[in-house]
Simulated scan of single mutants.
Amino acid sequence: MTMIKIVFYGLAAMLGLFSPPVLAETKAYQIELIVFLQTQPNTEVFDQVSSEIEWPSGLTELSAYNKAENTTLDDSYAALARDSAYRPILQVAWVQPVEEKGINSPVHIQGADGKLNGYLRIQHDQGLQMVVDLEFSSKSGDRGSKNLVYRLNEKRSVKLNEVYYLDHPKFGVIVKMSSL
Protein backbone atom coordinates (compact mmCIF):
# COMPACT_ATOMS: atom_id res chain seq x y z
CA MET A 1 0.00 0.00 0.00
CA THR A 2 1.43 3.36 -0.91
CA MET A 3 1.98 6.11 1.64
CA ILE A 4 -0.69 8.27 -0.03
CA LYS A 5 -3.33 5.54 0.40
CA ILE A 6 -2.36 5.05 4.04
CA VAL A 7 -2.68 8.78 4.75
CA PHE A 8 -5.97 8.94 2.83
CA TYR A 9 -7.54 6.02 4.73
CA GLY A 10 -6.24 7.42 8.02
CA LEU A 11 -7.82 10.82 7.36
CA ALA A 12 -11.09 9.20 6.26
CA ALA A 13 -11.20 7.13 9.46
CA MET A 14 -10.49 10.18 11.64
CA LEU A 15 -13.18 12.24 9.92
CA GLY A 16 -15.63 9.40 10.47
CA LEU A 17 -14.80 9.28 14.17
CA PHE A 18 -15.05 13.00 14.80
CA SER A 19 -17.90 14.04 12.54
CA PRO A 20 -21.40 14.02 14.04
CA PRO A 21 -23.58 11.12 12.95
CA VAL A 22 -26.21 11.87 10.37
CA LEU A 23 -29.55 10.95 11.88
CA ALA A 24 -32.90 10.99 10.15
CA GLU A 25 -35.23 13.40 11.85
CA THR A 26 -38.32 11.82 13.36
CA LYS A 27 -41.65 13.57 13.91
CA ALA A 28 -44.78 12.32 15.62
CA TYR A 29 -48.05 12.29 13.70
CA GLN A 30 -51.59 11.56 14.77
CA ILE A 31 -53.31 9.24 12.32
CA GLU A 32 -57.08 8.79 12.37
CA LEU A 33 -58.86 6.10 10.40
CA ILE A 34 -62.51 5.21 9.88
CA VAL A 35 -63.54 2.16 7.85
CA PHE A 36 -67.16 1.70 6.83
CA LEU A 37 -69.25 -0.63 4.67
CA GLN A 38 -71.28 0.75 1.79
CA THR A 39 -74.65 -0.89 1.41
CA GLN A 40 -75.70 0.68 -1.89
CA PRO A 41 -76.25 -1.79 -4.70
CA ASN A 42 -73.71 -1.88 -7.52
CA THR A 43 -73.19 -3.89 -10.66
CA GLU A 44 -69.48 -4.64 -10.30
CA VAL A 45 -68.48 -8.30 -10.24
CA PHE A 46 -66.03 -9.42 -7.57
CA ASP A 47 -64.29 -12.78 -7.77
CA GLN A 48 -61.46 -12.54 -5.23
CA VAL A 49 -61.89 -15.40 -2.74
CA SER A 50 -58.62 -15.27 -0.79
CA SER A 51 -56.25 -12.62 0.48
CA GLU A 52 -53.99 -10.99 -2.11
CA ILE A 53 -52.19 -8.63 0.25
CA GLU A 54 -48.41 -8.79 -0.06
CA TRP A 55 -47.50 -8.28 3.59
CA PRO A 56 -44.52 -5.99 4.06
CA SER A 57 -41.77 -6.78 6.52
CA GLY A 58 -41.66 -4.95 9.82
CA LEU A 59 -45.42 -4.95 10.33
CA THR A 60 -46.25 -3.31 13.67
CA GLU A 61 -49.42 -4.02 15.61
CA LEU A 62 -51.62 -0.99 16.21
CA SER A 63 -51.53 -1.71 19.95
CA ALA A 64 -47.80 -0.88 19.96
CA TYR A 65 -48.61 2.81 19.45
CA ASN A 66 -50.17 5.25 21.87
CA LYS A 67 -53.85 5.98 21.33
CA ALA A 68 -54.55 9.56 20.31
CA GLU A 69 -56.00 11.64 23.14
CA ASN A 70 -58.23 13.82 20.97
CA THR A 71 -59.85 12.88 17.69
CA THR A 72 -61.30 15.09 14.99
CA LEU A 73 -63.29 12.60 12.90
CA ASP A 74 -65.97 11.81 15.50
CA ASP A 75 -68.59 13.87 13.63
CA SER A 76 -67.80 12.00 10.41
CA TYR A 77 -68.23 8.67 12.20
CA ALA A 78 -71.56 9.82 13.68
CA ALA A 79 -72.81 11.00 10.26
CA LEU A 80 -71.93 7.63 8.70
CA ALA A 81 -73.68 5.79 11.54
CA ARG A 82 -76.89 7.82 10.97
CA ASP A 83 -77.02 7.13 7.22
CA SER A 84 -78.52 3.75 6.30
CA ALA A 85 -76.31 3.57 3.18
CA TYR A 86 -73.22 3.16 5.39
CA ARG A 87 -72.19 1.03 8.34
CA PRO A 88 -69.05 2.08 10.25
CA ILE A 89 -67.00 -0.94 11.33
CA LEU A 90 -63.80 0.61 12.71
CA GLN A 91 -62.60 3.92 14.13
CA VAL A 92 -59.03 4.16 15.43
CA ALA A 93 -56.58 6.96 16.13
CA TRP A 94 -52.95 6.60 17.15
CA VAL A 95 -49.72 8.55 17.46
CA GLN A 96 -46.89 7.27 15.29
CA PRO A 97 -43.29 8.46 14.93
CA VAL A 98 -42.41 8.94 11.28
CA GLU A 99 -38.89 9.37 9.95
CA GLU A 100 -38.42 12.31 7.60
CA LYS A 101 -36.83 10.18 4.91
CA GLY A 102 -37.81 6.77 3.64
CA ILE A 103 -40.45 4.19 4.37
CA ASN A 104 -41.77 3.73 7.89
CA SER A 105 -43.13 0.63 9.58
CA PRO A 106 -46.53 -0.43 8.30
CA VAL A 107 -49.29 -0.55 10.92
CA HIS A 108 -51.52 -3.64 11.05
CA ILE A 109 -55.19 -2.68 10.83
CA GLN A 110 -57.67 -5.35 11.83
CA GLY A 111 -61.35 -5.40 12.72
CA ALA A 112 -62.52 -7.07 15.92
CA ASP A 113 -64.45 -9.74 13.99
CA GLY A 114 -61.51 -10.57 11.70
CA LYS A 115 -63.36 -9.57 8.51
CA LEU A 116 -61.21 -6.46 8.03
CA ASN A 117 -57.46 -6.97 7.69
CA GLY A 118 -54.55 -5.06 6.17
CA TYR A 119 -52.13 -2.25 6.84
CA LEU A 120 -51.44 1.47 6.54
CA ARG A 121 -47.91 2.73 5.90
CA ILE A 122 -46.55 6.27 5.90
CA GLN A 123 -43.74 7.11 3.49
CA HIS A 124 -41.72 10.28 3.44
CA ASP A 125 -39.94 10.03 0.08
CA GLN A 126 -40.78 12.97 -2.11
CA GLY A 127 -43.38 14.46 0.18
CA LEU A 128 -45.66 12.67 2.60
CA GLN A 129 -47.51 9.62 1.27
CA MET A 130 -49.74 6.92 2.67
CA VAL A 131 -50.19 3.39 1.41
CA VAL A 132 -53.42 1.69 2.44
CA ASP A 133 -53.92 -1.99 1.66
CA LEU A 134 -57.07 -3.36 3.29
CA GLU A 135 -59.30 -6.32 2.60
CA PHE A 136 -62.82 -6.94 3.83
CA SER A 137 -64.05 -10.53 3.80
CA SER A 138 -67.76 -11.28 3.42
CA LYS A 139 -67.43 -14.52 5.48
CA SER A 140 -71.10 -15.39 5.55
CA GLY A 141 -72.51 -18.28 7.56
CA ASP A 142 -74.10 -19.89 4.52
CA ARG A 143 -72.23 -22.98 3.38
CA GLY A 144 -73.47 -22.60 -0.19
CA SER A 145 -72.37 -19.02 -0.66
CA LYS A 146 -68.87 -18.09 -1.74
CA ASN A 147 -66.61 -16.18 0.66
CA LEU A 148 -65.64 -13.01 -1.24
CA VAL A 149 -62.77 -10.72 -0.35
CA TYR A 150 -62.93 -7.05 -1.31
CA ARG A 151 -59.60 -5.22 -1.54
CA LEU A 152 -58.79 -1.54 -1.37
CA ASN A 153 -55.14 -0.92 -2.29
CA GLU A 154 -54.16 2.70 -2.76
CA LYS A 155 -51.16 5.02 -2.49
CA ARG A 156 -51.81 8.74 -2.02
CA SER A 157 -49.84 11.89 -1.45
CA VAL A 158 -51.14 13.55 1.70
CA LYS A 159 -51.10 16.97 3.26
CA LEU A 160 -51.32 17.38 6.99
CA ASN A 161 -54.73 18.14 8.53
CA GLU A 162 -56.64 17.21 5.37
CA VAL A 163 -59.28 14.47 5.27
CA TYR A 164 -58.93 11.77 2.61
CA TYR A 165 -61.62 9.44 1.36
CA LEU A 166 -60.56 6.14 -0.21
CA ASP A 167 -63.36 4.47 -2.11
CA HIS A 168 -64.30 0.92 -3.00
CA PRO A 169 -67.81 -0.18 -4.07
CA LYS A 170 -68.18 -2.33 -0.92
CA PHE A 171 -66.31 -0.29 1.71
CA GLY A 172 -64.64 3.03 2.22
CA VAL A 173 -61.88 4.55 4.35
CA ILE A 174 -61.52 8.04 5.78
CA VAL A 175 -57.99 9.03 6.86
CA LYS A 176 -56.53 12.14 8.44
CA MET A 177 -52.92 12.82 9.44
CA SER A 178 -51.94 15.66 11.75
CA SER A 179 -48.58 16.83 13.04
CA LEU A 180 -48.12 16.89 16.82
Rank of each mutant, 00 (worst) to 15 (best):
V107W: 06
L134N: 07
K67N: 12
Y9Q: 06
Y77S: 08
L90T: 14
S51Q: 04
T39M: 10
E135K: 03
W55H: 09
A112P: 00
I103Q: 06
N153Y: 14
L17R: 04
Y150N: 08
G10Q: 02
N147I: 08
E154K: 14
P97T: 12
S105F: 10
E154I: 14
T72G: 11
N147G: 00
Y77C: 02
V22M: 04
G114K: 12
L59F: 07
W55N: 07
G58E: 07
R82A: 15
A112K: 14
N70F: 07
A13N: 01
T26K: 07
Y119H: 08
W94E: 03
Y119L: 03
I4H: 06
D142M: 08
G102M: 10
Y77D: 05
P106T: 07
D47H: 11
G10K: 02
K139I: 01
L23Y: 03
A81K: 15
F136V: 13
D74N: 13
T71N: 11
S179F: 02
R87N: 11
P97R: 08
L73D: 08
V95D: 12
S63M: 12
R121G: 02
Y77G: 01
S145K: 15
Y29N: 05
P88I: 09
R143E: 15
Q126L: 11
Q48R: 15
H108A: 14
K176M: 14
V35R: 06
M14L: 15
G102Q: 07
A79G: 02
